[in-house]
Design a protein around this nucleic acid. Structure first.
Lengths: 343, 343
DNA sequence: GTGAAAGCGCTAACAA
DNA sequence: TTGTTAGCGCTTTCAC
């Protein structure tokens, strides 16, 4: 193995306790002794073994991240931001996704029960309530990401889907559209639910009645967007604008429009949600809602660390909604400033 | 803390050693005792503390993954596959990217020096040789992903960029194209180098001379693809086909073609490399090379675990190239079977 | 200001 | 087949 604290102590002519105190900056150490120890430690490039350290301190300096089975593009950003923030705080990141053979609970237990992490960040868009009960019992702090508003007894950081959806639909209303359709996200997905709520609120706030025929089901896939538009544009009551609850579905709608010779936004305006990379490449560029995923990750880590350190009471519920801003493309009918690509 | 081995031992009326042996399946234990212990352990939902376990065994059951600063879409697949494979083997995954404030070496030392992981998987497309020297000195096994062929003294799993590029260029040649241009990847990136080599080899294998004017520099960005096509199509010696060294650049080329009213593949055929999700959405669908990223991750994990267990000698170099297959779209001139989308 | 010593929870060598 | 015991490398009282 590497050089250990005993070695350093011997070389410095002190006890291991003194070395430990010095390196941890706790307890009194004479300045001269301190210097000598630091010096020697550096010289031998000594790094305390975190495993042993963890055993003794009951802390691992590691946070766990649990992602859903289906990961899309922006989980990459999420991981990136979490990693970045953790690094700043000298923490490590353990990743696990709840895929195929493994469900969220199992993954959590694996992490928690085993004392491998000091806390967990859990992407929770599709968490069911039975799981939540379990989560609440956890001895280690958990921060939820995009948790349903039902879950009010825990800590969560969330994209404000409601506000974002409302904003983009109001933008459409501002364009003069009155027959605004929505292609919804999957049932039981809280992001989807909130986006739908934002849609209905925006309409009612402007005195526009909800029309059943303009509300179609979807599941966040390209296909759903494709068939959604097909269906909407083939019925007597055609929409003049379509709010796809995510960009993938908007993309499907684009495809459908193209294959049906429907022009965007002339024949129908389209907007999305997520601001995925792809949305920038569509012609016209998709008007969508930007999801502050990077900020979400950073905030989650920072808060989790405070829970771990006891700086905030881990038992105290907290919820934060991050504002999601509208990105104007040409698909809503705006004169398009962000022409094409990123050239 | 949780229940510990001592408790279980007490409840079972045996020593902790017997419990340990039972739970680890090593050493002899009378069947009856074994059953009783298992039973009690289950009853109390006892899980050995991996930190303590690791301290004693000098093993953490954790593998580290180091990603480059710039992560694109397929790192998500990579992470997914690594995670999946690690899970099968009851291992944990620690992720770190070498971003902004932190370089690869620092990240590695953090992982290795600190005994947090038993081994590391390192994405190495742009590793410089000084780092390699350092890597070789590592006490813990390292598996490189997409390492340069220069690096022959280590273990690596690689996409066969050379073969993939050669295959797709030969496909173009099969279409009858003779003026095949390439938009290259960034200097010093080994993937880029190999793809270029595949290109030149394919041409020379078919007795086609290299034309300097048909070789343009690039850096894997959309912009590079855009300007690459612009430049190629505006010179006297126009290509009849362009091999963009990755899909992003192919995408840029599509854009450029569109804005210049150049038709693909009528005026010029275009192919890419990577098979990113986006390539499926282009019209015509991009002919490209599929990168077996999932397989890459799985194999890397499996091999790393064998190095860790001593099943293979960690000091023994090993290199494997995974075949990259051509995906036919319409952009090369093939009658397009994979029409549109994924509908 | 410093050191001795008792853990942290577990594994493994050795003894019984 | 089982138990005793000595660590693993570090932190943390508690004396000195």
């Amino acid at each position: 193995m590497n050089i250990d604290i005993k070695e350093i102590a011997r070389k410095a002519g002190v006890s291991i306790a003194t070395v430990s105190r010095t390196l941890n900056g706790k307890g009194p150490v004479r300045e001269e002794t301190r210097r000598r120890i630091i010096q020697i430690a550096r010289e031998y490039n000594y790094k305390p073994n975190p495993i042993a350290r963890g055993l003794s301190r009951r802390q691992t300096d590691t946070i766990g991240v649990i992602l859903p089975e289906l990961m899309d593009e922006f989980f990459m950003d999420l991981i990136h931001s979490i990693d970045e923030e953790a690094y700043r705080a000298n923490r490590f990141v353990m990743i696990s996704s709840s895929h195929s053979q493994r469900n969220i609970v199992e993954t959590l237990i694996e992490f928690m029960g085993s004392g491998r992490v000091d806390g967990v960040i859990l992407m929770a868009s599709e968490l069911d309530s039975s799981v939540v009960e379990l989560l609440k019992k956890s001895k280690r702090p958990i921060v939820l990401l995009n948790a349903s508003k039902q879950i009010n007894s825990m800590v969560s950081f969330n994209v404000n889907n409601y506000q974002g959806a409302m904003a983009i639909v109001e933008h459409l209303i501002g364009h003069g559209f009155r027959n605004i359709a929505i292609i919804k996200g999957p049932q039981g997905n809280c992001d989807a639910d909130e986006r739908f709520k934002g849609y209905t609120e925006a309409l009612s706030a402007h005195g526009i009645a909800l029309q059943e025929e303009l509300i179609v089901a979807g599941n966040f896939t390209i296909q759903a967007g494709y068939y959604g538009l097909m269906r909407l544009m083939s019925q007597p009551q055609k929409p003049d604008a379509i709010f796809a609850a995510n960009d993938m579905m908007a993309l499907g709608a684009y495809e459908a429009a193209r294959s049906s010779h429907i022009q965007i936004p002339r024949d129908v305006a389209i907007t999305g949600f997520d601001d995925i990379f792809l949305s920038r490449l569509l012609t016209p560029r998709l008007t969508t809602v930007h999801v502050p995923i990077f900020e979400l990750g950073s905030k989650a880590v920072r808060y989790l660390l405070r829970m771990i350190s006891g700086d905030v009471n881990p038992g105290y519920p907290y919820r934060e909604e991050l504002t999601a801003g509208v990105i104007l493309g040409g698909s809503c009918g705006c004169a398009n400033p962000t022409t094409q690509l990123l050239l």
